[in-house]
């Protein structure tokens, strides 16, 4: 009771922001990976998240799996879909100007979204939600959101480890830095690109599967998240994983602070204002230059 009320509120708003950031971090990681290695802006990323969410939901209901087990199934299924999408579509335009791959993925996005709308209809789905909270003094932490945050952080660390410490990571980095040189060094860059895209869609599926527990989602959910993911990746620094994590935290906290101290309606304005400021004054992102 010796914490003043305004200070406890401020802390709570920041905590809420960081926890929202955890959701964003996970969503943005896959997008960032694909951009880093393939140099394509995956505009269909949100729709891969949606497909992961719907798959996890269907699997959990049909097979009675726990949401976390369903998340792994969704990740495997989407890794396959991602690999096919890359091999037969994206790979064919990989050397074309960026807008060609952008248009191609836009078409993929439309097909996925409307296909899902046809299969599942416009209904909203959600898996059972655990609203229980940990209370520390005047502050409260929703357990499920803490779990999502931990997963986002864990996945970021795992990706960093994978990139820095493994042979696969080395070939990913080599391909990201210079495709032709990597190929000359004996790296099968086509396979690396396919693996990176598959990993990216698998991560998208995992974040989608977690979102089914936090939100009510439907086949159109992709559009809500994909733009925010782009904002996060740009704020954090394109291609940098620690940057994307920092970007997600910054965007999350900026949103909750704006909502609490100004108006909820302005939260998106703040997000894209930050996006513009970073783009103009620090185009490499807040942690840019450390690109991995």
């Amino acid at each position: 009771m010796n914490t003043p009320g305004w200070f406890a509120a401020l802390l709570q708003v920041i905590i809420n922001g960081l926890l929202v950031g955890g959701v964003y971090a996970l969503s943005a990681a896959g997008l960032n990976l694909v951009f880093g290695v393939l140099k394509v802006a995956n505009i269909a990323h949100g729709d891969f998240m949606m497909l992961g969410a719907m798959t996890a939901y269907a699997v959990s209901l049909k097979l009675g799996l726990s949401p976390y087990a369903a998340m792994l199934v969704a990740a495997i299924v989407l890794a396959g879909i991602g690999a096919l999408t890359q091999r037969f579509l994206v790979e064919r335009v990989i050397h074309s100007p960026m807008f060609v791959s952008l248009l191609l993925l836009f078409a993929v996005s439309m097909i996925l979204r409307n296909g899902a709308l046809h299969v599942w209809g416009p209904t909203y789905v959600s898996l059972s939600h655990d609203s229980s909270v940990w209370t520390v003094g005047p502050l409260s932490f929703t357990k499920l959101r803490v779990a999502v945050f931990a997963l986002g952080l864990g996945l970021t660390l795992a990706l960093l480890w994978l990139l820095q410490k493994t042979a696969f990571g080395q070939s990913l980095r080599a391909t990201a830095q210079h495709m032709d040189l990597a190929e000359a060094c004996g790296i099968n860059v086509r396979r690396v690109r396919m693996q990176a895209f598959a990993l990216g869609t698998a991560i998208a599926a995992m974040s989608g599967a977690l979102l089914v527990m936090l939100f009510s989602v439907n086949p159109s959910m992709g559009e809500i998240f994909v733009l925010k993911c782009f904002a996060i990746v740009v704020v954090g620094g394109l291609g940098s994983f620690s940057g994307a994590f920092a970007g997600a935290m910054i965007i999350g906290v900026a949103e909750t602070l704006t909502s609490y101290y100004a108006a909820t309606q302005l939260s998106d304005v703040t997000v894209f204002l930050l996006f513009l400021i970073v783009l103009v004054f620090r185009p490499s992102g807040v942690l840019g230059g450390k690109a991995t």
């Binding site: 809420n16 929202v20 959701v23 809500i224 949103e255 909502s259 609490y260 108006a263 909820t264 939260s267």
Partner: peptide, 20 residues
């Protein structure tokens, strides 16, 4: 009385204001 974005992904701050 307050409005929020139609596609909001987080309403925790709004709920805190409501509580207040």
């Amino acid at each position: 009385k307050e409005e929020y974005p139609e596609k909001a992904t987080d309403l925790s701050s709004l709920v805190m204001k409501l509580k207040r």
